[in-house]
Structure formats: C-alpha cells, structure tokens
C-alpha cells in the first residue's frame, strides 16, 4: 500500500491505460502497435494497480490461476490459427481477400483503414495480446506474492 498521492493518480489513470492497451491490440492491423505492445501496456496497468494497492487488494479481483488459463488459451489459439492454414503452408493467411470474416479487400495506397480487413491478423493479435497480458501480469503478481510472504516472516 503506497501513499495517498500514488493511489489517487492510480484511480484516475488505470482505466485509461487498460482501454489504450485494448485499443492497441484491437487496431493492430491498422495503426502502429500489435499484440505484444498492447499486452505490455495492459500488463503495465495491472502492475500500477498492484504497486499502489498491494497484493491483498488485487487478489480479490484477479487470480493467478485465471491468468494461467488465459495465457494457455492465447498460446493454443495462436498455434491453432497457424495450423488452420496448413492446406497451403504453416502460417498461411487463408482468410485474407476471401470475403468472409475479416476478408474485405483493402484499398491500395494511403487510406483511413477498414477494421474488417487483413484475414487472420486480428485473430492472431488477440491471441498474442492475451498471452502477453496474462504472462507479464502473472509474473508481476507472483513477485508481489513473494514480497508479501517476506513481509510476514
């Protein structure tokens, strides 16, 4: 538990940080960023809350086992999407320009961007984003747990 200044700033900032991170993950195929960067930003928001409020407050709304499940879902989803294109090659982009999900053809040249383009890239962005978010968040959470145990003894 940190001082009152840190807690007030955290109350103002953390929702904005989480929304910005999810925005980076969701628009990874249109704007700079992607799964890894957005996951790192969301994990930094988790770390901010964890430092400001301590482990015991965060434990009630975020469990380490849930984060492990999320990380496994991310990794398996990434490899699964890669295997779905194995009719041609591993990591083949089978959804691009097909007209289905995320399958609109994009305009060549400078354009404002369409969220419904670029095939499997948004799905892979979400998978890698979930994986990085859960991985880095569980690292920080485990370290905070170790510090708390050290305090008690």
């Amino acid at each position: 538990m940190m001082s009152k200044i840190v807690r007030t700033i955290t109350n103002i900032l953390y929702s904005s940080i989480l929304i910005f991170g999810f925005y980076i993950i969701m628009h990874g195929h249109l704007t700079p960023g992607g799964g890894f960067q957005g996951g790192a930003v969301v994990a930094s928001g988790i770390a901010l809350v964890l430092i400001a409020y301590g482990y015991d407050t965060v434990k009630s709304w975020m469990k380490k086992s849930n984060l492990s499940v999320l990380e496994s879902i991310g990794a398996l989803g990434f490899i699964g999407i890669a295997f779905l294109g194995i009719g041609t090659t591993f990591f083949y982009n089978f959804l691009a320009n097909s007209g289905g999900l995320f399958g609109d053809p994009t305009v060549i040249g400078i354009n404002p961007g369409n969220l419904d383009t670029s095939g499997v890239l948004p799905l892979m962005n979400w998978a890698v984003g979930l994986k990085v978010l859960a991985g880095l968040g569980s690292v920080v959470l485990l370290m905070a747990y170790g510090i708390r145990k050290g305090d008690e003894e």
Binding site: I24, P32, G33, G34, F36, Q37, A40, V41, A43, S44, A47, L48, L50, I51, L136, V139, V140, M143, A144, I147
Partner: peptide, 22 residues
C-alpha cells in the same frame, strides 16, 4: 512507433514496477 510503444510499456513501466517490488 512500434518500437516506441514496446519500449515505453516494457522498459519504462514494467521494469520499474519489478524494481520497486524488489
């Protein structure tokens, strides 16, 4: 800007958090 976002997220935020915990 890709590298800038990754550096700001990992280097400036997460590493600082881990060091402060230590």
């Amino acid at each position: 800007p890709d590298v800038a976002i990754a550096e700001a997220g990992i280097g400036a935020a997460l590493t600082t958090a881990i060091f402060i915990l230590a």
